[in-house]
């Protein structure tokens, strides 16, 4: 009975949204489509950051509140390397590698000593994120940094119905899709991916069957952190990097994984799309109150499905 009622509400909500969408298309088709595309490209960025966050949580049960710092530090290091080498692609690689290395150091040097101790881990990560933010402010100052991507991805592309749209944002969307599929394939078909999935289900069992769990943890953490650093450079190119971005993306990742379901990569993708699209439609159609949309979605999910849309009860 409750399930029927829940779906009944979902249908009503869906109908209202569909009606609004039809009105949006009839009212101004171009604006509607551009906003949708903007929402999807923003979602792509959110997904890149949140996928690493959720991967780490799923396996290690570690809410890494320094995830935003990995994003910001990866972006800064990427920027420095990009300036030195003059290549944006090297900058992206550097952002990934540096953040992955940081993640490795964090896991091996810090979190291994407080496994299963949620509160201590949370406090430690908050502390680390504050230190990282201050160190970054000290080294790079409060300036605003922007990347110089190769010219073929900086212009605009004419799309059917939509018209001119930023090429870079389309590249961002494609990148996120590729990474998403890659991540899924990695988890589904490789040996390490298999171990990670096994670890998510039952860590004790995995360890008992002779797998070096600590190594699996370290690899997962490195990949998750690397994705944050990667997103730092890629996102910094679309927008910009400045102090404060760390908490911004940490909050975005938190909202995305809470909506999508902690520990689920597919959930991160779904959550990212919901939040990204809601944010952009808010900005375009209700600029003053748009910021509320994100949190309405979060509140609804928490009220009706506390484990997240694709999350599993633990």
């Amino acid at each position: 009975m409750t399930i029927v009622r829940r779906w009944y509400w979902a249908w009503i909500g869906g109908l209202i949204i569909a009606a609004l969408a039809v009105w949006g298309i009839v009212d101004n088709q171009r604006l509607f489509l551009v906003t949708t595309l903007n929402g999807l490209t923003l979602a792509a960025l959110y997904f890149l950051v949140a996928s690493g966050f959720t991967l780490v949580f799923g396996l290690l049960r570690n809410v890494n509140l320094a995830h935003g710092s990995l994003y910001l530090l990866g972006a800064y290091v990427g920027w420095v390397v990009g300036e030195l080498t003059g290549s944006w692609f090297v900058a992206v690689a550097a952002g990934f590698l540096f953040a992955a290395l940081m993640g490795l150091v964090l896991q091996v040097g810090v979190f291994r000593f407080m496994q299963g101790d949620d509160l201590r881990q949370t406090m430690a990560t908050i502390g680390l994120s504050i230190i990282a933010a201050d160190v970054a402010l000290w080294i790079w100052g409060g300036q605003i940094y922007q990347f110089d991507p190769p010219s073929w991805i900086t212009g605009t592309t004419a799309l059917p119905l939509v018209g001119k749209f930023s090429t870079y944002r389309l590249v961002l969307l494609a990148t996120a899709v590729v990474i998403g599929i890659g991540l899924w394939a990695f988890l589904a078909y490789t040996r390490v991916g298999m171990m990670i999935r096994a670890g998510v289900d039952d860590r004790g069992m995995l360890s008992a069957s002779g797998v070096n769990v600590q190594m699996v943890f370290a690899i997962t953490f490195a990949i998750g952190a690397g994705l944050a650093g990667f997103a730092g450079v890629v996102g910094g190119t679309a927008l910009s990097i400045a102090p404060g971005e760390d908490t911004r993306y940490l909050l975005a990742s938190l909202v995305v994984v809470i909506v999508g379901g902690m520990g689920s990569v597919a959930g991160a993708a779904l959550g990212a799309v919901l939040i990204g699209v809601a944010e952009q439609f808010g900005l375009a159609y209700a600029p003053t109150y748009g910021i509320v949309f994100t949190f309405v979605i979060m509140a609804l999910v928490l009220a009706f499905r506390p484990q997240g849309i694709l999350g599993r009860r633990t």
Partner: peptide
């Protein structure tokens, strides 16, 4: 008039409008 939130970052939809 487009009044946008402080620290909003992504203005693409505001620009489209």
């Amino acid at each position: 008039k487009a009044w946008v939130p402080l620290g909003g970052k992504d203005y693409s939809s505001v620009i489209a409008k």
